[in-house]
């Protein structure tokens, strides 16, 4: 089991191989279907994004509301393939990588290789466990999208597997 602390430098990214089990700690941010649509409207209109994309890790997820006293509700990954058309552009803009579940397109794999990034697979369906790995959660953009808004999450020992590494290898 490899322990990773975010942000990842390129040397660490290069050391990760598809199939490696990892525990991630640090800051990530959620974005799924509607948030991606909104991000692309911003890009098209030349507007500044309300968060830093450079070296960030996007988590394809939409959490449940947090119960009182908890940082987050259940928050497992959603199916990444729905973000296939968005990911290459964001990776070319400096995004460090993504966490989601399931295969993505060949274009995404190419963009990961081209930019020395990484795609992690979280374990789909393990929402409660991931909710407990989140120690702090804050909505940083698009609050009107409710669970589809962008949340900045502080995670500790978030379990995942390297799905696509920067050499173009895949676990699938």
């Amino acid at each position: 089991m490899i322990k990773l602390t975010l942000p990842l430098d390129k040397k660490t990214v290069k050391s990760l191989k598809a199939g490696d089990s990892v525990l991630i700690s640090g800051t990530i941010m959620t974005a799924r279907d509607c948030a991606h649509k909104r991000i692309f409207e911003y890009i098209k209109e030349g507007k500044k994004l309300p968060f830093e994309l450079k070296d960030a890790i996007i988590y394809y997820a939409g959490p449940c509301p947090a119960k009182p006293g908890m940082a987050s509700g259940s928050c497992g990954p959603t199916t990444s393939t729905r973000m296939d058309s968005f990911a290459p552009t964001l990776l070319d803009m400096g995004l460090g990588g993504m966490i989601g579940k399931g295969e993505m397109s060949g274009e995404v794999r190419e963009a990961i290789k081209r930019n020395t990034c990484v795609y992690f697979a979280a374990i789909g369906g393990a929402g409660a466990l991931y909710g407990n790995a989140i120690k702090k959660s804050e909505c940083i953009a698009f609050a009107d999208l409710l669970s589809e808004a962008v949340y900045r999450l502080e995670v500790v020992d978030f379990p995942a597997v390297v799905a696509y590494d920067c050499d173009g290898n895949s676990i699938y």
């Binding site: 997820a61 939409g62 959490p63 449940c64 119960k67 908890m70 509700g73 259940s74 928050c75 497992g76 959603t78 374990i123 789909g124 369906g125 393990a126 929402g127 409660a128 466990l129 991931y130 909710g131 407990n132 379990p159």
Partner: peptide
């Protein structure tokens, strides 16, 4: 991970999956 998740969901009475 999944079996542990099912246990945690039950103990903490939180959704087993966020969907």
């Amino acid at each position: 991970t999944l079996l542990q998740n099912a246990k945690v969901a039950c103990e903490k009475n939180m959704p087993v999956c966020q969907d």
